[in-house]
Design a protein around this nucleic acid. Structure first.
Length: 400
DNA sequence: AGGTATTCACATGAAACTATTCTCTGAGTTAGG
DNA sequence: TAACTCAGAGAATAGTTTCATGTGAATACCTGT
């Protein structure tokens, strides 16, 4: 017991040398003031404020790439709204759901069930018909006179997976309810997402639109500095560290989340090294680490068939730079036969390749070779220095 | 030469199928009165 | 008779197959000069 306390004490005192409040660098943290989003904040607040008079606000669509502050701004505004309404004795209630969360809210059934859960009723994860879930949901909503604001984060994922039926139902809920009213704030990374929607849904859901532009390097620097003031002890950041983080992130469409993470990891590396300062060198290391982990973790998590496919892909890539889907499929089938596993169809492999593309492991380009058909040109986008490590992981995963 | 048609080798889309996980229901069984 | 058990029916879901349709441009095939 005694010794453990010492260990913990040592850890505590050590960890405070660099950080004073590491939380401030995570996406959970809501800063006191949100920089460079004044316009968006007022726009959203104006759109939603009719709720304070118990009128249903317009539905809103919010677009912007990842790390542009969509979620932050939305939750900020909605929290303020909820608090204000509570003070004034009005019944505005905000329900936030992230539609991407696997096994939580990524299908029609699960989304509605998770909303019910937020309203205080637990429903089974499966087994009930969907209409039953809706019935529960309506019942819960209509208990009292209220304005509900549903925030559906990463709504594009939901639609991609399950179609827009859910949205259609949600848009219509107001006609089913007697006391309560519901308006929807949809947040999406994908601007083209609109085109996949049914026109009825679109016209109702897209009543208002707010677009979040990416941050530029200067804005990122300011955001980082502000957070760093809270997160780090004074004077531990070397000149140029923040600029460097901002520059790395600006290269990636101005993703503030990434910039913050980079800064945090740089700090952690410095800390582990026992350094008293975070140096620019640490940022480079952090960037390397992030890139590496992005690849390695993804590869590890792949199911068997995907691993086989990826392995075949690396092998083909060794032989020649340009890999075409047809050749890859042959290679893959051969390899499956070799290790005695039933190969998937070409159709499925095609989808898996698309998934790899989304994960950033490869780069697909559909090209036409005229008379010689149409195919996909596949480029491995795993950095050279990681390919070997990836291969090793795959070999272990496949038992060879 | 210039224009149209064909053709290849896949891509892409939609639907259906399989296996798994979960709930609900109701018949049959058991234990207690 | 009330409580319990357990099989079977019905749902949702992930992962896949089957069937159908789409596609871009190099080549083949015309046509008229």
């Amino acid at each position: 017991m005694q010794e453990l306390v010492n260990i913990f004490e040592a850890y505590l005192s050590k960890s405070t040398r660099i950080f004073s409040n590491k939380e401030a660098l995570t996406s959970k943290f809501t800063p006191g003031k949100i920089l460079h989003r004044e316009e968006e904040i007022t726009a959203l607040a104006q759109i939603l404020s009719p709720s304070l008079k118990m009128e249903k606000p317009s539905n809103v669509f919010i677009y912007g790439k990842s790390g542009t502050g969509k979620t932050l701004v939305t939750t900020f505004v909605c929290n303020q709204l909820e608090n204000f309404s509570k003070k004034k004795g009005k019944g505005v209630k905000v329900l936030y759901t992230n539609c991407k969360m696997r096994k939580v809210a990524d299908t029609e059934y699960r989304l509605i069930a998770s909303l019910c859960r937020k309203l205080g009723r637990n429903l089974p994860a499966t087994g009930l018909p969907t209409y039953e879930i809706y019935k529960n949901f309506f019942e819960l909503l209509d208990r009292e006179e209220r304005i509900y604001i549903l925030i559906l984060d990463e709504i594009d994922r939901l639609v991609k997976k399950c179609g827009d039926e859910v949205l259609y139902n949600l848009v219509r809920v107001n006609s089913e309810l007697k006391k309560a009213k519901v308006s929807i704030v949809g947040i999406s990374n994908d601007i083209t997402f609109k085109t996949r929607l049914d026109s009825r849904v679109l016209s109702s859901l897209g009543e208002e639109e707010i677009i979040f532009p990416p941050y530029d390097a200067i804005q990122l620097t300011e955001i980082l500095s502000e957070r760093a003031k809270i997160a780090f002890r004074e004077g531990v950041l070397e000149e140029g560290v923040i600029q460097k983080c901002a520059a790395y992130a600006a290269r990636e469409h101005g993703d503030a989340r990434r910039a913050l993470e980079l800064l945090r990891i740089a700090g952690e590396i410095a800390e582990r090294e026992g350094s008293l300062k975070v140096l620019e060198r640490h940022v480079d290391l952090a960037n390397e680490k992030m890139e590496r982990e992005a690849v390695i973790e993804v590869v590890k998590k792949q199911p068997l068939q995907s691993k086989i496919l990826l392995f075949s892909l690396i092998k083909s890539n060794r032989k020649k730079q340009k890999v075409y889907s047809g050749d890859l499929y042959d290679e893959y089938v051969n390899f499956c036969k070799m290790i005695g596993i039933k190969p998937l169809t070409q159709r499925r492999v095609s989808d898996l390749l698309n998934e790899f593309d989304v994960l950033g492991l490869i780069n697909n380009k559909v090209i036409s070779l005229g008379r010689y058909g149409r195919t996909r040109e596949i480029n491995l986008s795993i950095p050279q220095n990681l390919v070997e490590e990836v291969e090793k992981i795959l070999k272990v995963g496949l038992g060879i």
